[in-house]
Structure formats: C-alpha cells, structure tokens
C-alpha cells in the first residue's frame, strides 16, 4: 500500500528548569493510505507529543529537535507559516483528548465548524454554516443543535461535533488522540463506531492513539507500542497479539483483564516508567523487564524488522 505519512527519526524535547525532557526519542514509522494505525502506551510515553508534532503544534518549552515528517512528499517541518496554515486541518485534522474542552465554550457549535471551513475554502459564511449543518447530520446530531453552545451538549454529542469538525475539509489523515477517554463506556462505543464508519466512508487514514490496547485490537490494522518516548514494537494487529516479541508488549497483553474469576488478582507489570529528564543509556524498559540480560543496561536496541512487517526493539530478539 502507498505511504501517506512518513515519520523519520522524530525527536521532541521539553526544555524545563530541570533540564531537557526527551518526550519522543528518535521514532520512525509510516502511515499508509486508508489504514488505521494504532499507537499504544502508558500515559506520558509520548503518544500525544507525536500527534501534536505531525501538525507542528508543539509549543514552548517543547521543541522538535530532530527528524522529518513527510506528508505526501512534503516535509511538514520545513513548511512556511502560510503553507503550514493551509496544511493544518485541510490535509490532517485531529480529534483531541479532552472531549469536554476542545470546543470553545463561548462560540456556537455551528460557527466553530464553519470557522474551519471559512479559513480554508473560499465560501460565504452562509454556505459554511450550511455545510456545518450537513456535517452535524452526518455524525448523528440534529440540525437544530447548530446554534447550541458546547455546554448545552452531552459529552458524547460534543465529541461527535468535534468529529464533524474534523471531517469538515475532507482531510486525508485524521489523528484521534484518546478520543473516548473522557466518555462513559456506552458512549465510548458509539463514538468509536462513528469514527470507524467515517474512516471507511471517506477512505481516511486514521491514527488512533490510546492507552487501551484491548479497544485498539478490534479497530487497528497495525499497532505501534511505545514506551518512555521510544518505539518498542510495531506489527500487524493480528501478528502483534498472536506472537508478541517484546517483553513490554507481552506484559501489556497479559495485563488485559477480560473476564477474571472472582478472587484472582489482576496482573500488572511491576515498577513504573523512568523519568525522562535523565539520559537512559540502555533499553528504557530494562529496569522493569523480566527477561533482561547484562547488555540491556548499556546497549540501546534499535527498531529492527525481524519478520516481514514486524519490527521490534529488543536486545534478546536482535
């Protein structure tokens, strides 16, 4: 399949008083046209930072220190402000983490969707509002809600409105950063179904970011597992679940609960992720790894293709 987005050796750091925090440390991956690409990992592992980097939304004290982000042949990191503004939302749009907070509370839903259209397309305000209305209908919100303010909508409806806004310009890539975390379980399901439906209908590429790999398993074509700013494993979903190669991936899969018998303790990976403000000499997962060997604390494993389309960064495997 054809490549739509290429992320090469991306490094993003936050420069704080405590020093440089390497939130994303030399990550590379490709997104193909029309695929659903999952990025999974614990909170703070750099998933959202990657998402923000693709649209160049990293704000000080954060900075993209190295790498390339190539979308359809153009390096996003070298775009001028003008090119960047045309690129944002038109080519790549985003559904943000906080369903509750990504709409401006003092502007009407309709005008926020219309705003996105008016920035990029040369249409009248009336035309833009009409399109906003159609988009709302598309995601299952009544037309009459066009003039509502965000606080008048339920959480699920708000996230639907955000999805409608993300689809406003027919982007090629949609990044959904934990699109359902703030919602209750039933609504989560509906929002995910809607996202998948839209993905199929518009032949979107979708980057789906979540800490919940069980949800991701049912949706994504491929999954990337991140840990402490680095990519640990990347494979087709089926492959990843049937033969995980990295100890961290195995730990994540093992910690999935499913139906647990009463009285049985839930399993979790011992320890916690490292502080990112210090240099990690070897594998970042080494301190928590059950299968570590001596060289793990000194040698940083690179991401290697060990089987066709199955990449892993682990000293034991490579």
């Amino acid at each position: 399949m054809e490549t739509l987005l290429e992320v090469k050796n991306l490094s993003v750091s936050y420069f704080t008083r405590r020093g440089e925090i390497k939130a994303v440390d030399g990550i590379s991956f490709n997104i193909r046209r029309g695929e659903i690409f999952g990025i999974a990992g614990e909170s703070g592992c750099g998933k959202s930072t990657i998402a923000m980097s693709i649209l160049r939304l990293i704000r000080p004290p954060g900075r993209i220190v190295d790498g390339e982000i190539i979308f359809d042949g153009t390096n996003v990191l070298q775009m001028s402000q003008e090119e960047l503004r045309n690129f944002r939302w038109k080519k790549v749009s985003m559904v943000f983490q906080g369903a509750m907070n990504s709409l401006n509370p003092v502007h009407r839903i309709g005008s926020q969707i219309a705003e996105a259209i008016l920035i990029h397309d040369d249409v009248s305000r009336r035309e833009a509002l009409k399109r906003a209305e159609e988009l709302l209908t598309l995601v299952g919100i009544e037309r009459s809600r066009l003039k509502d303010y965000p606080h008048q909508l339920s959480g699920g409806m708000r996230q639907r409105a955000v999805i409608a806004m993300a689809l406003a310009l027919n982007p090629k890539l949609l990044i959904a950063d934990e699109p359902t975390t703030a919602l209750d379980v039933v609504v989560q399901r509906q929002v995910l179904d809607l996202l998948m439906d839209m993905q199929r209908r518009f032949d979107l590429s979708l980057i789906f970011i979540s800490h919940d790999i069980s949800t991701m398993a049912g949706l994504s074509d491929r999954i990337a597992i991140m840990y402490a700013g680095r990519l640990m494993e990347l494979a087709d979903t089926k492959e990843l679940f049937s033969s995980p190669l990295h100890a961290y991936t195995r730990g994540l899969i093992k910690s999935l609960t499913g139906f647990v018998h009463k009285g049985r303790r839930l399993w979790s990976i011992p320890g916690s992720p490292p502080d990112l403000d210090a240099d990690i000499p070897g594998c970042s997962f080494e301190p928590r790894c059950q299968e570590r060997s001596d060289r793990c604390s000194s040698n940083t494993p690179g991401l290697m293709e060990v089987e066709p389309h199955h990449y892993v960064a682990c000293n034991r495997v490579t």
């Binding site: 923000m52 649209l55 939304l57 960047l84 503004r85 045309n86 690129f87 944002r88 939302w89 038109k90 749009s93 985003m94 943000f96 983490q97 906080g98 907070n101 990504s102 709409l103 401006n104 509370p105 003092v106 502007h107 705003e115 996105a116 920035i119 990029h120 955000v162 806004m165």
Partner: peptide
Amino acid sequence: DYITTAMAKGVKTRSIIWRHAARN
C-alpha cells in the same frame, strides 16, 4: 484545549489571540 484545536484548524494567530483567547 480549545486553543490547541483552533491552532490545529489553521486559525490565524491574531484571531486565536482575540477571538478565541481574549474573548474568554
């Protein structure tokens, strides 16, 4: 978050400052 959303939408800086942030 809605300021980040506005930036992602490609809203001009001046409009982000006044229409989206200062207004609130």
